[in-house]
């Protein structure tokens, strides 16, 4: 079956929706997503939930160690741990 230019699958819509949360979806992808959002309940639900998750994580100001900081912490700890 020929792939439609405007109509995308639910999985593709979810993938674009994920990318959009990180501003990595192109305008064309966003357009295709908005077409799908007009008629697909599953995509609408996923989109709403995904957006909410982004908002929650942003508003929490959650922090975590970056890989280098984590490695430094791990090295220091392992050194001590080996003495026990």
């Amino acid at each position: 079956m020929k792939k439609s230019v405007f109509f995308i699958s639910c999985d593709e819509a979810k993938h674009i929706c994920d990318k959009a949360q990180y501003d990595e979806a192109s305008s064309w992808e966003k357009f295709k997503l908005s077409v799908r959002l007009m008629y697909c309940n599953v995509t609408q639900k996923y989109y709403k939930r995904n957006k909410k998750l982004t908002k929650v994580v942003k508003s929490s100001n959650a922090e975590c160690l970056n890989p280098k900081e984590r490695e430094a912490l791990e090295m220091k700890f392992k050194k001590e741990l080996s003495k026990h």
């Binding site: 929650v56 994580v57 508003s59 929490s60 959650a62 922090e63 975590c64």
Partner: peptide, 9 residues
Amino acid sequence: NAELGNAIH
């Protein structure tokens, strides 16, 4: 926010 951050982790 701190509580939410803890919930996320």
